[in-house]
Structures are given as C-alpha cells and as structure tokens.
Design a protein around this nucleic acid. Structure first.
Lengths: 252, 252
DNA sequence: ATCATAGTCGTCTGCCTGACGATAAACACT
DNA sequence: AGTGTTTATCGTCAGGCAGACGACTATGAT
C-alpha cells in the first residue's frame, strides 16, 4: 500500500515528568496545580507538548529546566554539578486519558537532590514538593486534615510507576547518589535508601556495603558534622553506575 | 492559557514490535522486508499505526496477531496457551527518524516460543526469523555470504534495546519460560538462557537453581527424551514471576 | 557390549549478608 | 570537667548461596 498521509489519525504528544527528591526523610514528587480545565485546581505532574523539532528527551529536559531550573545530566558529560538524572519512564496512550483529544504522553523520570522551593511559571503557590505517599492516597486526608483530591488524568498511575522504577533502580545501580548533593556522607546516602524504600537499614552493614563496592564512592578527604555526632567522611559519586552484587531491599 | 487546538503539532503514533524467540540455539527476532519507500527492500521490525480508538497495548497486541498469529498473554488471564509475553519497551521520537513525517513509535517487546514459519500479510518471503546478531551487525556479511544491510529507520537501536531488556529481565524474573513451549525440560530452559545470554551454563548448578526456586517450575509428571540421553522430567511454568535471588549472568 | 549423550544428585569452598557487639568523635547538657 | 546523646566506623560470627566439579543414572546409537 502506498504512503497516504490520511491513513493515520493525528495525535498530540506530550512529556510528563515524575521529578523525585528526598526531603525531610520522605520521598517527594514535584506537583503542579492545574490552572485550567479539565481537572482545574487539581494537582498534576509537570509536563507539556513536544515541539515539532525536538526529540523526546530534549522535550523532557526542557520541561525540567522550566519547572525546576535543574539541568539534566547528559550521560555523555556527567561532570557538571546540580544535574538531575533523567530517563524515559513509559508511554501512556489510553484513548480516554485526556477528555479533550487523543494525547499520548511519554513520561520521564527525574531524580534530583533536595532543592529550594519550586516554581511553576513564577507562581510558587501552584507548585510544591509533596510526599508521594500523600499524592497517591486516593480520597483520604492529608497531614493538614484537608481532603486529598487524586491527581489529574492518569498521573497517579504514572507517579506510581515512576516511584516503583526508582525503588527498583537504586537496588542495582548507583542512582541513589542522584538524590544527594555533590558531596555527601554515607549516612546521608543511607537516609536516601531508607526514604525511597520506606525501610530502616542497619548503618553498619550499609556502610560496609557501599564503601566496599569499588567505584561507588570516592572519598573527597573532607569531613562534616552537619548531621550531628561524630564527624563523617565526605564522598562523591564514583564512576560505577551498576552495583554488582546489588543492594538488597529488605523483605516486607 | 486557555486550551488551543492549534498549540501543538500533530504526530503520527506507531507501535513497533521486537518479537524474540529462540531457534536452533540462537536468539532470533522477527524481521519484515519493507515493500515500499523509504528503505524499500530493507529489513525492518513489524509495526503499524495506532488506531484512533485503541490503546497502545491493544495496538501492539493487534500487530502481534497480524504478524505471527500469537495471542499476547493478558497478565490478568495467564492460563491460555501459545501466549507470548508482551510488554512496552520504550518510545522513540527523534524528529528525523522517519523522513516522511513526524512519527513517534512506541516499541513493544514480545517473547515467544519457537514458531512455525512467519507470515507477513500472507507473503512468507517477506518475513523471517533472523538471529539478532545478524540483524545488528552493520555492513558485514551474513552467514550466506551476502552483504547485510542495516535495519530500516532506527530499528537497529530498538532491537538492541529490546534484546538488552530481554537479557536483563530473565535474570530476575521467570520470563525465560515465555520462550519455551507449555511443557519443557530443565535442559531446554537452560538452552534458552544460554542462547539469550550467549554463554554456557553449568547444567548441574542450573538444575539446582531452577528446581530449588519455589514457584518457578512445577513438574507435570511426564518425561521426555526428545533431546536424547536420559529421560528428563517435564515442567511447566509456575506462578512465580519474580526470581529472588536472581539467576546470575556469568561475568564476561 | 560399549559408547556417547543428557539428566540428576552431592560435596566443598569462598563470598556475601544479616545480626549485633564495641569503639570513636563530636555536641549538649550540667 | 564530666556525663549523656548522637552519629560514624570497625569487627566478629553464623547462615545462605553460587561456582567448581565428582559421581551416578538412564536412554539411544554403533
């Protein structure tokens, strides 16, 4: 059959972002309050249309900068600071996922260190870091006692998939360091694992594991007492990306 | 900003399939010869446009049936036979990946047992199972001495990603059984791992591992000598989907 | 009868993990 | 200055699992 431009239906293609960070010992996601219908006033994941001339990863990186100011880590140039990890998550294309039209959304997952307050087009009240637990509970009540509305569209599913990806990926990769500032202690890294997995880990075994894995951490020589207690060595992320053998997530 | 239908560029959305199987101790992928420009006469992955009223996974399952006659395993009803595993792989949307227009392709990965000859729209000469090694080598010569043209579009990248997904996924899941018929022996399952990973495994340690993992294999009671040698017990896939601890892929 | 092939059961050793004791170095009190 | 608290770090020990490999079994082929 010859090429026929009318043989396919037109789609809108967007990127949505699951931006995760660890704040106050909790795994948090960036959420944006919708200013327009549908789902006006409800919380949603940041995202937007893919432009005609840009790749999907470019679109995701652009949205990330627009929403957070974060520069996505280019895998080819992992040297720069303040860079978040960014990877494609999955694509969602249910015909009814957007009531207005047929939209296919390519969701991306970003892991970022703890940041100052977010901004959404300059309006801070319409963007926030919310614990994923709070965003994912349906029809419950938040910590402030107010009723919690579920996320817009299918964003609860996307967020859940992103969280699950993050949880499994820090098992066998060194990605947990993407949640840390450029220099961090073993204890800070452990608190990242504890927050993402929602478990408590043995500090001694964790220390043995991460310091004993070649290429995972490189000491910077400095120490810090910002967590209180005995001064802790500072490290930065080493070159290794894969953890072998993996970090074991405790059984339920 | 209000909703404006002209605010986004239109895209064509397709699904492409990486259909993998194990034939004659080699990991093979389904390839279709293109009958039209661009890349006319070159091999490509099967795929097609997503219809206006179908979900992405529905489109992938439909293409799979059209190309192979395989029914995709519905995760909710894993009882049926002859069902292939089907999952979303990744989405490819480089603006220049299709010279005709802006196409975003949602690639899916299917794992199937060894099948009779494939068909492509009824024309068997335009569809074949080819060793992935052969499809991925660029500018070399195939086993028959003929020069090998690279796959059309970015399908070499998609195939490589699918193969890598399959290789890593059989480590920590029981998905390798998707390459086997409904009843199989431990040795046949081992040859699947050997073909997908391109390694040689110790039959004794492999046997201990798979029979010692609860829920991985359930004996059917029958035996077979179809591989020669001493009769081997027949098994079918158990209910377990996750392998913990995982099957370890030998170091390079 | 002998051989080749493939399957199955054991043994041993080394590595890694989980559990947990012990020590070290800071700060906050009194 | 001493005492308690907190966090970091080092060590020890037992159990589980994987890799290496020996031994035996049950078929078909010659």
């Amino acid at each position: 059959m010859p090429y026929d431009p009318s043989a396919f239906p037109p789609f809108a293609v967007t990127v949505d972002l699951v931006v995760l960070t660890v704040r106050r010992h909790a795994l948090c996601s960036l959420a944006i309050r919708r200013g327009e219908a549908p789902f006006q006033g409800r919380w949603a994941l940041p995202g937007g249309f893919v432009r005609a001339d840009e790749d999907l990863s470019q679109a995701a990186a652009r949205e990330l900068v627009e929403e957070t100011g974060l520069c996505a880590h280019d895998p080819a140039a992992p040297a720069q600071d303040n860079g978040a990890h960014l990877e494609q998550l999955a694509t969602y294309g249910d015909p009814k996922r957007d009531p207005r039209m047929r939209v296919v959304s390519v969701a991306h997952l970003a892991l970022a260190p703890d940041l100052p307050a977010p901004r959404a087009g300059g309006d801070a009240s319409n963007a926030r870091w919310a614990p994923v637990e709070e965003l994912l509970q349906q029809g419950g009540y938040g910590r402030d006692g107010e009723p919690v509305a579920p996320l817009a569209f299918d964003h609860a599913q996307i967020l859940a998939d992103g969280v699950e990806r993050a949880r499994s990926k820090i098992e066998y990769s060194s990605l947990a360091t993407a949640f840390c500032p450029s220099e961090f202690t073993v204890g800070e890294l452990r608190r990242v694992y504890e927050a993402v997995w929602g478990v408590v880990l043995d500090p001694r075994n964790f220390h043995r594991k991460v310091t004993g894995t070649p290429g995972f951490l490189v000491p910077t020589g400095g120490t810090t007492t910002r967590q209180g207690g005995r001064p802790a060595q500072l490290f930065r992320a080493g070159g290794a990306t894969l953890l072998n053998p993996p970090m074991l997530r405790p059984e339920v």
